[in-house]
């Protein structure tokens, strides 16, 4: 247990100031998203008598045009976005990496089929893929998850395949083969140490992209079906009231920007000085 704590500390020390700030920001947001349901148990409960109520101590972000608690809806929407994003990126990385290494390693027909498929997919904007999948059965969460994961695995597949093919045909792996070191050695010492930093960077991009995709779909009206709270949908709903009730639109927009800034900050390599 204490060893785990130590290793977390060691990792934190390696981070730059910007990265630590970004991590803190994202943690804060995660706490807000997770703790939300205890404070605001029902994010869809309407109270039309309190519509467009301005922020107060008991309702820190005010209420919307249907008298729903904006803070409660925001916590719920944030949780939804982050959960979908993490689930999609995890799925996409695992699938993309396995397929990529398989294609690079086996070559031949496996590679031809997978590579051909990815060539077709790569001409499709990711948003288009998500839109099409969500068209199959609109508004359901699984289509959103499936669509985003389907759109994202291609990237991991292509990068992992290209990088692995380069490494596998390179002199280091050739030497390992002559030394009769098996596939586990190649995976653990050659491929994984090389792919890990690449995938980590891509994953932070991917989570941002996924959060953005969910909210974009909500914004154009083909995402998560109302009344389930969702960031993009909240912004659309709030826009007509931007003058009377700015808290309604500013709050979800801010959360979206904070997620993206946080993920962006994680990638900055500025030194901690």
């Amino acid at each position: 247990m204490s060893a785990a704590v130590m290793s977390v500390r060691a990792r934190l020390r390696g981070l730059s100031l910007a990265q630590r700030a970004a991590l803190g920001l994202l943690m804060l947001l995660a706490v807000f998203a997770v703790a939300g349901p205890w404070v605001w148990p029902d994010p869809v409960a309407q109270d039309l008598s309190r519509f467009l109520e301005p922020p107060s101590l008991s309702e820190p972000l005010g209420r919307d045009h249907l008298g729903r608690s904006v803070a409660g809806r925001l916590a719920s929407a944030t949780r939804l976005s982050l959960l979908i994003a993490v689930a999609c990126v995890t799925t996409a990385i695992v699938a993309g990496m396995l397929a990529g290494i398989l294609a690079a390693w086996r070559g031949g027909l496996v590679d031809t089929v997978l590579h051909g498929l990815s060539e077709a997919f790569v001409a499709l904007p990711a948003l288009l893929i998500v839109l099409m999948v969500s068209a199959m059965s609109g508004g359901e969460l699984w289509t959103l998850y499936a669509g985003i994961a389907l759109a994202q695995w291609i990237e991991y597949f292509r990068v992992v395949r290209a990088r692995s093919a380069l490494l596998l045909s390179g002199p280091a792996v050739e030497a390992a083969t002559l030394l009769r070191l098996g596939p586990m050695h190649v995976l653990r010492r050659h491929l994984w140490p090389d792919l890990r930093p690449l995938l980590t960077t891509m994953a932070t991009f991917g989570i941002g992209t996924a959060v953005l995709a969910v909210s974009t779909l909500g914004f154009v009206g083909v995402g998560v079906a109302p009344p389930t709270p969702e960031l993009g949908q909240m912004i659309t709903e709030a826009f007509p009231f931007y003058h009377e009730a700015p808290w309604m639109s500013v709050a979800p927009a801010l959360v979206l920007v904070v997620v993206l800034v946080g993920l962006l900050g994680l990638r900055t390599k500025e030194s901690a000085s």
Partner: peptide
């Protein structure tokens, strides 16, 4: 066995040399 023009590309580039050598010793 083979020796390469640029030995730096003949070792796994991201791990300390000893890690790869230990795999050779174990094998």
């Amino acid at each position: 066995q083979k020796l390469y023009q640029d030995p730096a590309v003949a070792f796994p580039s991201r791990v300390p040399i000893i890690v790869g050598l230990r795999d050779v010793l174990r094998r």
